[in-house]
Amino acid sequence: MPQILIDHSPGLDFDVLGFAKEVHQLVPEVIGARTDDCKTLVRPAAQHLVGDGATTDAVVFVEIKLLAGRSTEARSALTARVTELLRGYVRVPAEFCVEVTELDRETYVFVHHSGR
């Protein structure tokens, strides 16, 4: 179930799939979800801007969406571990944002569509 969205600056040279695979291993360790349930989308941005544009720092945003019910402590631990993991993958000056959000169990729908 965990949905992982990785947005990053254009041209950022880092092993984003290696990072995602490690996150897929980390999520079950911290919050108890199954590795096979993790799904990640990587979305390189067409452009980015930090502040007034004076810096060329890269930007990486990671959002992990979980079904509601995990404790604040577990979500915070996941945020900290993913942030630390990201530090090891991005080797250029960068600004990071890692957020763990909750999906409402009553309004969230996930469908495995087998195609036609």
Results as ranks from 00 to 15, higher is better:
3 Q>F: 12
3 Q>A: 08
3 Q>H: 15
3 Q>L: 13
5 L>C: 04
6 I>C: 12
6 I>W: 05
7 D>A: 12
7 D>M: 00
7 D>V: 00
8 H>Q: 06
8 H>A: 01
8 H>S: 12
8 H>C: 08
9 S>M: 08
9 S>P: 07
9 S>E: 05
10 P>V: 07
10 P>R: 01
10 P>E: 06
11 G>K: 02
11 G>F: 04
11 G>N: 03
12 L>P: 04
12 L>S: 08
13 D>T: 10
14 F>P: 01
14 F>V: 01
15 D>V: 00
18 G>F: 01
19 F>D: 00
20 A>H: 04
20 A>W: 06
21 K>D: 02
21 K>R: 13
21 K>A: 10
23 V>L: 05
23 V>Y: 03
24 H>T: 03
27 V>E: 04
27 V>S: 08
28 P>E: 07
28 P>K: 10
29 E>H: 14
30 V>Y: 03
31 I>G: 08
31 I>N: 11
32 G>P: 05
32 G>S: 04
34 R>F: 09
35 T>K: 10
35 T>I: 07
35 T>H: 03
36 D>Q: 09
36 D>C: 03
38 C>N: 15
38 C>M: 04
38 C>T: 13
39 K>S: 08
39 K>P: 04
40 T>D: 07
40 T>F: 00
41 L>Y: 06
42 V>I: 14
45 A>N: 09
48 H>L: 01
50 V>Q: 11
50 V>P: 03
52 D>N: 14
53 G>I: 10
54 A>F: 04
54 A>S: 15
55 T>D: 11
55 T>W: 04
56 T>F: 01
56 T>V: 05
58 A>R: 12
58 A>E: 10
58 A>Y: 07
59 V>L: 15
59 V>S: 12
59 V>I: 15
60 V>Y: 02
60 V>C: 08
60 V>L: 13
61 F>I: 11
62 V>I: 13
63 E>Y: 09
63 E>L: 09
64 I>V: 15
66 L>C: 04
67 L>G: 08
67 L>C: 05
68 A>R: 14
69 G>A: 12
70 R>D: 09
70 R>M: 06
70 R>A: 07
72 T>K: 11
73 E>M: 02
73 E>W: 00
74 A>L: 14
76 S>E: 14
77 A>V: 05
77 A>G: 11
78 L>S: 09
79 T>S: 15
79 T>E: 14
80 A>E: 14
80 A>P: 11
83 T>H: 13
84 E>C: 12
85 L>Y: 06
86 L>S: 04
87 R>Q: 15
89 Y>H: 07
90 V>I: 11
90 V>M: 06
96 F>T: 02
96 F>C: 02
99 E>H: 11
100 V>F: 06
101 T>I: 14
103 L>I: 05
104 D>P: 04
104 D>T: 07
105 R>N: 15
106 E>V: 01
106 E>C: 04
109 V>T: 14
110 F>L: 09
113 H>G: 05
113 H>A: 08
113 H>I: 06
114 S>C: 10
114 S>M: 13
115 G>C: 02
116 R>S: 12
116 R>Y: 06
